[in-house]
């Protein structure tokens, strides 16, 4: 399953970078992530609550930040397990400056699903996933405003 989205925000890349590198903020703005506990080395224990059409449940797994280049890009590696199946996702976030105080945030990712999640969720998943990407950008925007 492929995910992507682009959104322009009124803040310089560095400010956005700082927000995204803060686990508490990241947990707050990422839809379906309810908690991130740092495990060191840019690795986190991640707890997620997801409702996708007929499939609902909580996930537990790991999230790692890799391929970091401050303040330009990083990759999120997510491995989640649950009673309804497992999800393996890789998402690359690219921060492109536009002028002085604006950034285009670009998200591209792929997710691999298994178990019930794959068997029953697939039909509605594409739509839900894209709305989650949208939600992420909106949350990020509100967070920036709150910090301003």
């Amino acid at each position: 399953m492929h995910l992507e989205g682009t959104h322009s925000l009124n803040a310089p890349p560095q400010e956005i970078w700082n927000l995204l590198m803060d686990p508490e903020t990241l947990a707050r703005i990422t839809p379906a992530i309810s908690r991130l506990e740092p495990l060191g080395d840019d690795k986190y224990k991640a707890v997620a609550e997801v409702k996708l059409g007929p499939v609902k449940g909580s996930f537990e797994g790991q999230m790692a930040v890799a391929d970091k280049k401050e303040p330009e890009h990083f990759t999120l590696l997510i491995e989640q397990k649950s009673r309804m199946g497992n999800a393996n996702a890789e998402g690359r976030i690219q921060l492109n400056p536009i002028g002085d105080n604006q950034t285009e945030v670009n998200f591209t990712g792929d997710a691999k699903l298994s178990g019930t999640l794959a068997r029953m969720g697939q039909r509605v998943l594409g739509g839900v996933a894209n709305s989650m990407v949208k939600q992420f950008f909106q949350n990020l925007e509100s967070e920036l405003k709150a910090n301003a």
Partner: peptide, 14 residues
């Protein structure tokens, strides 16, 4: 089955 071998329509909804 998708390319990972997941049966993606394994219910009467699908």
């Amino acid at each position: 089955y998708d390319e990972n071998g997941q049966l993606i329509n394994g219910s009467y909804m699908d």
